[in-house]
């Protein structure tokens, strides 16, 4: 029964997150410049809940968290460099 309650609780969190995401996207004025960051933060939290509760099976969340962190660390430099290489100014645009 405890499992059932836990899974259902996470499901409601996911749904709530989805609704908030959509609300932010529909009316951006409320959050202004933080709208995009807010939506992404909600997505990260949702993924975290799926990882920690839905995916761990019967082994407990710790190995799962370790896997997730290591994997994200691997792709992180790519994101930073991709962002940096386009956002930082280069010499010019097409003649």
């Amino acid at each position: 029964m405890i499992d059932e309650a836990k899974y259902a609780a996470v499901y409601s969190i996911l749904m709530l997150g989805l609704i908030v995401e959509i609300l932010i996207a529909v009316d951006r004025s409320a959050l202004g410049a933080f709208a995009d960051a807010g939506i992404l933060a909600i997505a990260v939290l949702q993924a975290l809940f799926i990882f920690m509760v839905y995916m761990h099976g019967r082994y407990g969340p710790r190995p799962v968290a370790v896997f997730a962190v290591i994997s994200l660390l691997t792709v992180l430099p790519l994101f930073i460099a991709l962002l940096y290489s386009v956002v930082m100014p280069h010499h010019g645009s097409l003649p």
Partner: peptide
């Protein structure tokens, strides 16, 4: 299946909301 869900949780905001 959890991984498939987790990927979509990112895809939805990236493609529909941002």
């Amino acid at each position: 299946w959890g991984m498939v869900d987790a990927v979509w949780v990112f895809l939805f905001p990236l493609l529909y909301l941002l």
